[in-house]
Every structure is written in structure tokens, then in C-alpha cells.
Design a binder for these strands. Structure first.
Length: 216
DNA sequence: CCACCACTGGTTATGAGACA
DNA sequence: TGTCTCATAACCAGTGGTGG
């Protein structure tokens, strides 16, 4: 099965190689699963690299990576062609923001200040230095095809489940929340009361918890 | 009946400012 | 400088209304 998938990926790669990322995003949003897979595969190492840039005591590295992949998925879903930014730049923004938000949420729940995590992309000598801690201690990029396929399948399943269990409002609130907006900002954006946002988030969390427990 | 949503009220964590 | 108070944001549980 894994072998078949690898072959499929090779075919997909060939069929999308002459297209721009923006064109492939359009195809993915139109329901083209191969296009979506291609993008997720193409940017996977980028996400993994981003995930490695953050360290959080007690956190599983794979958790941070999964958050990054969710950010990538959201970038595909939300990318707007009428904006000037390239998809790559937009994806980088979404992935980074998703990871940082996840770290913030995790630390808040344990009542530990956010500053307990550090970015390995921080310049090591001074602010102008281009050499980062990451450059010094960077490891080998994960390139095991089996691991790549398995993690992508896992991500796809999680995304499908989330989409099924959440209402439209809950999904909108969740997306804004993950973008780092406050309850007030979300309430303003969606023309709702802050408490509505609050409750929506509580429901989202309950549903996601239930969803994740089911998977364990 | 059930899912969705709004509302109430309590708890907890955090930061800012006052004060000894 | 350390401690206390207060405001604010976020979290959580429970209850009730509404529409399909």
C-alpha cells in the first residue's frame, strides 16, 4: 500500500511540476485531492524545518510539526489570488503563526509563561547576524518516504474529522482564534457577542478533545 | 429529540499600579 | 524591593431557548 502511494506521489509530482503553486492551490480547493497531496508533500519539509525551530519543554516535536501542517492546510484553504503575496510567503506566515499559537495555548494551559520557548532562528551573535542557532545545530531533514506518507494520511484524517464535527460558526471562531485574535476581535469580526465566541471555543475544544480521544 | 447557540456566574492567571 | 489590590482575559460548567 505504501509502495502504491509512493508511485502515486511520483505521478502527481510529474503532473503538477509545470504548474505554479497558485494554480495547484486552485485545483486543491476545487477538490482535486492529488493537488492537495502534492502541496502538502511539497511543503512538508519546510513545515518540519519550521517545527524544529521551536522548542517547548514537555512538548512532543511531532505535535509541533502537526500544528505546522494544519497551518499549511489553512494556507491552502484561505490563500487569496487577488492579494499580491505569493502562496509560499502566505504559507510560511500561516505555518509559523499556527505553531506559535499552539505553543502559546499549550503554555497557557500549564500556566507557564510564553517565554519558556525559544526560536532557534534567533540570530546567535546579534540582531544583524544572519547566522542562527539553527544553522549551528541543524539536523538532517527527515526524508523517510514511509514516515512522510503516514504522517500525511494522519493529517488528512484529522482534518476530515474536524471538518465534520464543527459547525460553521465554530469553524470560523476556531480559525480566527488560531490566527491569534482575541475574543473581542473575533466577536467584532463575526458580529457576535464575545461570550458567543467564548462558548463556541469551549464547544470546539470539547469536540476536538472527544475527537482526539477517539483516535487514541 | 438533538444540535446549536446564548447567557449566567464562578474560577484562575496575569499584569499594572499603589504603597509600605 | 516585595506585597497587595484591582482590572482584564480566558477557562469552565450549567441552564435554557430555538429551529430542523
Amino acid at each position: 500500500m505504501l509502495l502504491e502511494k509512493r508511485v502515486d506521489n511520483g505521478e502527481n509530482k510529474n503532473s503538477f511540476i509545470d504548474k505554479t503553486d497558485e494554480e495547484i492551490v486552485i485545483l486543491a480547493r476545487e477538490g482535486n485531492k492529488e493537488a492537495l497531496d502534492y502541496l502538502l508533500c511539497k511543503y512538508e519539509n519546510f513545515v518540519r524545518g519550521k517545527a524544529k525551530s521551536y522548542f517547548l519543554i514537555g512538548a512532543d516535536r511531532e505535535d509541533i510539526y502537526q500544528e505546522g501542517m494544519i497551518g499549511l492546510f489553512k494556507a491552502i484553504r484561505d490563500f487569496r489570488l487577488d492579494k499580491l503575496a505569493s502562496f509560499k510567503a502566505f504559507a510560511e506566515l500561516c505555518v509559523t503563526r499556527q505553531i506559535i499559537t499552539a505553543v502559546k495555548t499549550a503554555t497557557r494551559q500549564k500556566h507557564i509563561p510564553l517565554n519558556t520557548y525559544i526560536s532557534l532562528n534567533k540570530p546567535i551573535y546579534d540582531e544583524e547576524s544572519e547566522r542562527t542557532l539553527m544553522d549551528i545545530i541543524s539536523g538532517v531533514k527527515i526524508s523517510d518516504p514511509e514516515e512522510l506518507v503516514i504522517s500525511r494520511e494522519e493529517l488528512q484524517n484529522i482534518e476530515n474529522e474536524i471538518g465534520q464535527v464543527l459547525s460553521e460558526l465554530e469553524m470560523e471562531v476556531l480559525m480566527s482564534y488560531l490566527d491569534g485574535k482575541s475574543y473581542q476581535e473575533i466577536a467584532c469580526d463575526l458580529d457576535r457577542q464575545a461570550k458567543s465566541i467564548d462558548n463556541a471555543l469551549q464547544r470546539v475544544k470539547r469536540k476536538l478533545e472527544k475527537c482526539l480521544n477517539k483516535r487514541v
